[in-house]
Structures are given as structure tokens and as C-alpha cells.
Simulated scan of single mutants.
Amino acid sequence: MEIKVIPVALADIEPLRSIFLHESNFQFIYNKCHLYDWADTYLCQVNGQKAGYAAIWGQSRREDRDAVFEFYMLPPFRALANLMFPELQTVSGATFIECQSNDTLLAAMLYEYGHSIQAEAILFEEHYTTHLHLPGVVFRRKLVTEPNIYNAGGYILELDGEEVADGGLMLNYNLPYADIYMNVKEGFRQKGLGSLMVQELKKEAYLMGRVPAARCNIKNQASKATLQKAGLKPCGFILKGALH
């Protein structure tokens, strides 16, 4: 049996990525690495057949190519993952892994071949619809003079005519997901404004034909509580580790 990993263009592995994203059925935060040409891609072959693919980017510097962030094997070849992954390390020279814990195959490779593993962020997915309301608070979007296809920003909360929070939706993740971001001004925090903003941004995401999602630093308890109050729930973690 011949196991082989070869560098290829993104277009060569796009059909395999489509299967990976369909099978995964979650927001894949590293999708932007391909959009912005931050990654190198590899085709995995078994006896000359397309068996899977991998992608590498720079853990600390985008110009480096030292961290595996995608590794996918088609179901008929998945049992060979433990033969393919070491070959990927050899060919690519990767010394790190970054992955989502809900990406079960790459997470398994992280725990088998990695060390010094740490969780960096919590991932959130939609759970239920909330009906939060704060008297006197208005949600609206400012006039957008220069639309950005990857960033739907300019949403604000106003209290008595004063802007007290802002936020938006990042659209550079895999379809149909949109990633919520927001900020509440100092002096107005811990009043429920953050959760109200997230609730309203969830609605905006659906109106765009997107599914809302979010993430926060694993140590940010305030953001975690805000997202959960707005009807999101933890669905995974961003994990990082070094390779043996």
C-alpha cells in the first residue's frame, strides 16, 4: 500500500473540503485562512486514489506554514489516518496543530501526536430564541457607506439617544454561518446590554440567510455568560498543541 501526501492548489481539494464541511455541520473558524490565501493545501493519496486532504498555516505569523488546521480523510480511508498523519508531518514540516474540539478527527490526531495542549477559546452555537427587552434601548444599524462582504458591522444600541454598545457579524466563515461580535461601553456593562445586542444580531444573521455563532476567550466568564443568556450554548473549544 502506497501512502502519499503532495502539495496541491486549493482548487484541487475543494470537493473534499465540501464533504468535510457538510459532514462536520458546524461553524469552521479557520475558513478565512483559505479566503485570504493564508494556507498551503495538501492532497492525501492511497495507492494513487484521493483519500483526503490537509491544510497548514502559520501559528504565530501568517507567512509561516507550521500548524495543521485541517486534516480530513474520506470515510473509506479513515482507518488509515494514523498512517497518513505522520506522512503529512514529514512532507509539510508542521510542528503545531490548531483545531476545534468538534473536529473529531483532527482532535484525535492532536491528542495522539501532540503535547503541551491548551484550550484557547470556547465556541458557541444557536440553542434557543430569547425575548430580551430593556426599556428605552433601541437597536439599529448605522448607515454603511462602504459595505464589506466579509464584515456586516455598524449595529448599535442606543439608550436615551446615546450609543452604548456596538457590534456586527463576520461573514468570512463557512456558509451558512455568521460570527457575532459586540462591545458594550465602559459604564454600561452588567446591565444586560451585551445579551440584548447578541439577541438582535442573531435575528439579523437569520434575515441574511445565515446561522448565528460566536466564540470567546476561555477565561472570559463575562462574555460566556452574555452569550448563554442570549440563547447560545458551548459546542466546542479551540485547541492548540505542539507536535512530537
Results as ranks from 00 to 15, higher is better:
K185V: 10
L169V: 06
P7L: 02
T129V: 15
Q45A: 07
K233H: 11
T129M: 12
H34T: 05
M1D: 03
V137F: 02
A67Q: 09
I97R: 00
F96C: 02
C235Q: 02
V144L: 00
Y36W: 05
K219N: 14
A205K: 03
E87P: 06
S24G: 14
P75Q: 07
T145V: 15
N25K: 09
K202L: 10
I56Y: 05
N47I: 04
Q89K: 10
I13A: 03
T95K: 12
Q59W: 13
G93R: 04
R62S: 14
L88N: 14
S223Q: 05
Q228L: 02
Q221C: 02
A178L: 02
L21T: 07
R210Q: 08
K185M: 14
K224A: 14
E200K: 09
P75T: 10
L10H: 14
A94C: 08
I218D: 02
T226C: 12
Y206H: 11
A54V: 07
Y155S: 04
Y173V: 15
K203L: 04
K240N: 07
G167S: 04
T145L: 13
F237K: 09
S92R: 13
R215E: 11
V211D: 08
K4R: 13
R189G: 02
E112H: 12
E120L: 12
S60Q: 04
M182Q: 13
P212S: 05
F69W: 12
D103A: 11
Y30S: 13
H127V: 02
A242Q: 11
L243C: 06
A81L: 12
P176F: 12
I180T: 12
S195A: 09
E23K: 13
L105S: 09
L193G: 03
R215M: 10
M1N: 01
V5S: 02
Y30H: 07
E2I: 14
Y177D: 03
A222M: 13
L193Q: 00
R140V: 01
A55L: 03
D12K: 07
I218H: 06
I180S: 03
I238W: 09
R61G: 04
L207G: 01
